[in-house]
Write a protein that binds this DNA or RNA. Structure first.
Lengths: 225, 225
DNA sequence: GTGACTTTGTGCATCGGTTCACAAAAGGAT
DNA sequence: ATCCTTTTGTGAACCGATGCACAAAGTCAC
């Protein structure tokens, strides 16, 4: 069923996909420092994972290593980039120019990974027309038109929670199928649309949970009740 | 081994801990709208999860529901808050006052969940002394002294990648055991320290991967090579 | 070419998490 | 008091991910 000349297998595990960007980051650092080849052991250490896991992850993309030697850094960078779709240019729009939206627009990590901020929107007439990261803030009324005109395929939602679902519905209607949501709400979308969410306060709450445990639990000493 | 009067089990699965803040958010919304009791079905829908999963998650905290009725909203809010350690006040410090650090300092979601921004640091003399979200930006030299003086137990790293490990080492040496890292580097810490990382560009890369799949894969039509 | 050595790629056991499906428990009606 | 309805809490099957451990495949020295 699997021919040797077509090693790449459709259907890469989600857990693997989530780690590929990590490997890519480590590899970029190595390429910059002039390292030509790397073993799974070293790359795994740089990415903060177990080496067996790294090898299994890479094996899902194909056999890009050489036994006895390791992986060629440049080649692996290319293969992972291609698999993640980073060899093409992605037009991203940011909706909501509050503190977070501004930070995201100026975040260098996006641009350096092949993501191009193509538009920035807000509903507040006060900020429409402002210049953010070299872009003119456009009014939310222009949302659909600009998305289509500039070929935006990924939208970042940095709106207040109350506005998120409405904006989401509009961008979905405009044909967007990938959304990164920073608003603290559960978005309802068709199955064909991918939503990833980042909730900053959730991360802190998880830390607080563990911190509390270390400190001695909520009722650890007290045995009453 | 498990007595009925002591239902809470130490050792809540990580996956469950990560969802508790989600339930909490949904419950807060319901409490605001005056809803007194809620079924696992409804709460699960509001949190965007499967109802069986929700029930199993809650069962790890204890038997706080009433069969045939559901869960009392206020009571469940209290139980989850306590389990997560949100009934106490957590002093948080933010290191790095770039765009992201500023956005985090002003982010309302922290304060409303029992987290208090107790200090903000930067290395740049240009911004030291500035006022961010009502706080005076302090010089990084003061890091250890201020952390100890104000009882900071959670640190948010929003520094450039190059500075993150050094700052991390210093806050760990100062006794901090919970770190939320926004810098795109793998931090090395002792086992006793918890690090959670948020990498904004990773989320976009995962979206790009799926978007590419939808559009027809990297070499889906082309069979050459 | 042969043998020693290195490192990949993967079969297999294991583990944690998810989902199903149902018995147990509570409430309300008659 | 008994029956019927509702909804929880959980045993058990299932599924995906992890990590061990090793054979296969390559390099290098001579």
């Amino acid at each position: 069923m699997k021919s040797p000349s077509q090693p790449r297998d459709r259907g890469i595990p989600e857990a693997t996909v989530a780690r590929l960007p990590l490997y890519l980051r480590a590899l970029h650092g190595m390429a910059e420092r002039g390292i030509a080849t790397v073993s799974s052991e070293d790359l795994a250490a740089a990415a903060g994972v177990n080496s067996a896991k790294l090898r299994k992850d890479l094996s899902h993309l194909g056999s890009y290593g050489t036994r006895g030697v390791g992986y060629e850094v440049e080649y692996l960078v290319y293969q992972i980039s291609r698999e993640l779709g980073l060899t093409q240019d992605w037009a991203v729009a940011i909706v909501g120019v509050g503190n977070l939206g501004r930070a995201l627009a100026n975040y260098g990590g996006f641009v350096s990974r092949g993501f191009r901020i193509a538009a920035v929107f807000d509903a507040d007439p006060e900020v429409v027309g402002d210049d953010i990261a070299g872009l003119n803030v456009e009014h939310i009324d222009e949302l659909e038109a600009v998305i289509k005109r500039r070929g935006v395929s990924i939208v970042v939602l940095a709106t207040p929670a109350a506005a998120a679902q409405e904006v989401c519905d509009r961008v979905v209607a405009a044909g967007v199928t990938s959304i990164l949501n920073f608003a603290p709400v559960v978005l309802t979308v068709p199955d064909s649309v991918d939503v990833r969410k980042v909730d900053l306060s959730i991360e802190l709450q998880i830390l607080a949970f563990h911190e509390q445990r270390k400190a001695g639990g909520p009722l650890m000493a007290v045995d009453s009740q």
